[in-house]
Design a protein around this nucleic acid. Sequence first.
DNA 1: GTCCTCATGTAACGGGTTACATGATTCT
DNA 2: AGAATCATGTAACCCGTTACATGAGGAC
Lengths: 167, 167
Amino acid sequence: MTTRYAILGLLSIEPMSGYDIRRASIDALSHFWHESYGQIYPALAELEREKLIRLLPQPEEARRPRKVYALTPKGRRALQAWRKKPPVTRPFRSELLLKLFTAEAPGDVLKHVKQLRKEETARLEEYARIEKRLAREAPAKTLWKATVRYGIHRSRAVIAWCDETLR
Amino acid sequence: MTTRYAILGLLSIEPMSGYDIRRASIDALSHFWHESYGQIYPALAELEREKLIRLLPQPEEARRPRKVYALTPKGRRALQAWRKKPPVTRPFRSELLLKLFTAEAPGDVLKHVKQLRKEETARLEEYARIEKRLAREAPAKTLWKATVRYGIHRSRAVIAWCDETLR
DNA sequence: GTCCTCATGTAACGGGTTACATGATTCT
DNA sequence: AGAATCATGTAACCCGTTACATGAGGAC
C-alpha cells in the first residue's frame, strides 16, 4: 500500500520513470525510505490502470526508450487524502537487542554494540552531507530538512546508548 | 529465521509452551520484539524436527494439555553461534517522514507529529515501568536493562525531534 | 570489443499478520 | 450459564527482497 503513495509522492515532485524512482528512493529518500524494482514496476502498472498516473509521450529526440509517468489530478487527490490519514507505524524490532537479551556474558555481544556505534557514526556523517546539500539546493523545503533531522536525532541517541552500554 | 532464535532465546531462560512464548513476547520482549501464533507454532514444529528443542513430558497433575518445550544441547549451541554473528539490521522506514516529504504545506502533517509526540511520551512512561520492574525482579540482568535503555534513548530523541519540528 | 550504466520487467521465495477453527478450563 | 482466558494450530494474504531475463547505448 505505502509503496503506491511513495511513488505518487515522488511523481508529485516531477514526472519520472520506474528507474528514476528507484534512483530517487536511493539518494533523496534513502534516509527513511527505499523501493525495489520488484515493487515499483507492478505498482506503476497498477496505478496507471487506476488512472492515478499517466504515461507521458516520449520526446522525439529520445534515444533510449523510457516510460515516464506523471500524476493525474485524481492521483494528486489520492496523495493528499493519504497524507491526511495518520501514518501506520510498524512495531519496532531489533535483532541486536534480542541478542543482548539472550546473552549470558556481555563478551558475546560487545562487538555488535561497537559495530553499531561505528555504523551510526558513519550515518551521522552521511546525514550531515545530505543536510548541507539540501541547504544548498532546496533551502525552502523545511520539511525535507526535518526528515534529515529525524535521522540525526535518532543516530545520536543510538550512539549515546552504545556509549552507555559499553560502560 | 530470526523467529527461530527468538524462540530459542526465550526457551534458554526457561521451558515454555507456544502460548507462553506469545505472552513472553508481549510482555518481556515487547519493547523490541514480538511474535504471532502464525509464526510460533510452525517454528516450534520445525525446531523440534531438527532436535534443537524437545517436548517435555506433561506432569501427571496437569489439567490443561500443554506442550512445553525445552532447549536441547544442540539448540543451546545453535543459539550461542547465532549470538556471535553480527545482527542483521533492516533499513529504517517511516511512513510519517514520507508524508512530511511529500507535504506541500505543514498543516497537513502537523497533527501526525503531535500524535507521534503523544505516543512516544506514553512509551517513555511504559519504559520507566519496565525499568522499575527489572530493577526489582532481575537486578543482575544488566543486559536486560540495556534493552530498555535503548528504548528510552530512542523515545527521548523522537520527542526532541517532534519539538524541534513543531517550531 | 568489452564493460558499465540505463532501462523494464518477472518469478520465486521468505517474513509476517490476520482471521479463522476448535475446544477445554476457570472465573463471575 | 456465560464470559474470559488458556491453548494449539492452519490458511489466506500482503509486503518486500533477490535473482534472473533481456536488451540498448555509451565509455574506454
